[in-house]
Simulated scan of single mutants.
Amino acid sequence: MAEAQLQQFLKKIEQLNAFVALSEAQPEVRQALQDCSNHHDVVQLAAQFGFEIGRRWGDSSPKQPRPTDQPNLLRGDRPTSGQERTDVLASGQHWRLERIHSCQASSPAEGWYDQEDSEWVLVLQGSASLQFEDEESPRDLCVGDALLIAPHRRHRVTATDPDPGTVWLALFWSADA
């Protein structure tokens, strides 16, 4: 582990310990923590008290500039809440590779994707829930989870993370390939 990563890790532990100490000292903070229903609620609550616990392992500080010739799939313009941004990274005659950045976005309640192409999708950052029309419950996906979606298998996104959002890598290809 590089020294900078070690310092980032130790800083997060320090912030977590201080937030725990505050919740033990103040019953109202403990109750608010208990009322949180997910990780994002906890991060938001901690931020209200000045604690930065939301950065994930490997996230760099926005203050650290990156060389322009060193692209990173996890950085870039974030969509506004409720929106999604798609960038085609590469493509060929019968395929395309996309980076999809969703920020607290979901498919319309009545909307289903029914696509001609096969799709392989991988969650690079954040988490999401994806519902197949032929399954009773949505599938919860987190970093590293991948799915292969057959052509015409109707599906929809039911939830993605709030800021900084969910980043997907999606490969689409047609049967002609």
Rank of each mutant, 00 (worst) to 15 (best):
E135P: 01
R139H: 12
D87L: 12
E133Y: 12
G144M: 13
I100T: 01
Q64A: 15
R75I: 14
S129Y: 08
R55M: 10
W95C: 06
I53F: 06
P67M: 14
D87T: 15
Q131L: 14
Q115P: 01
A47C: 01
P67A: 09
T160V: 05
P79V: 00
I100A: 01
D134K: 01
E52T: 13
Q48H: 09
S107I: 05
R96Q: 08
G82I: 03
V123K: 00
P65E: 05
A46R: 00
Q83S: 07
G126H: 02
D117N: 03
A128Q: 00
R99S: 03
D161A: 15
H94C: 08
E133V: 06
Q48K: 11
Q64I: 13
E136I: 12
L130F: 07
E135V: 07
V121W: 00
Q104T: 02
E52P: 00
Y113W: 13
P67N: 12
G50R: 03
L73Q: 04
R56I: 03
R99T: 02
S106L: 14
E110F: 05
L74F: 07
G54L: 05
G50Y: 06
S106V: 02
R153Y: 07
Q131M: 02
R154D: 01
D77V: 05
L124V: 04
W120H: 10
D77I: 11
P108N: 07
R139L: 15
K63R: 09
S106D: 14
L89G: 07
S127P: 03
A150W: 09
H152M: 07
W57M: 14
R85V: 06
D77C: 09
R85N: 15
D69H: 12
P71I: 03
G144Q: 10
S129C: 04
H155A: 11
S137E: 13
D161M: 12
E135M: 07
A146H: 13
P151K: 08
D134N: 11
L97E: 04
E133F: 08
G82H: 05
E119L: 09
L148G: 07
V157E: 01
R55W: 11
H152G: 03
P151S: 06
E119Q: 14
E116Y: 09
W57R: 12
S91N: 11
L74S: 04
G82L: 08
A146L: 04
R156Q: 14
W120K: 01
Q104A: 12
V123C: 02
V123W: 02
I100F: 00
I53R: 00
D140L: 09
S91D: 11
R139C: 12
R139A: 11
R55I: 03
G82D: 09
D134V: 10
T80D: 15
E119I: 12
V123Q: 00
P138W: 01
T80L: 10
V123H: 00
Q125R: 13
A90L: 10
S106W: 05
G144E: 08
P79E: 09
T86C: 14
G111A: 10
V123L: 04
D117A: 13
S129K: 08
S137A: 15
D114Y: 06
L147R: 10
A105M: 06
A105I: 01
P79W: 08
L130A: 02
Q93R: 15
T68G: 09
A47P: 04
A159L: 08
A146T: 14
L74M: 10
E110K: 07
D145H: 13
V88G: 02
C103W: 02
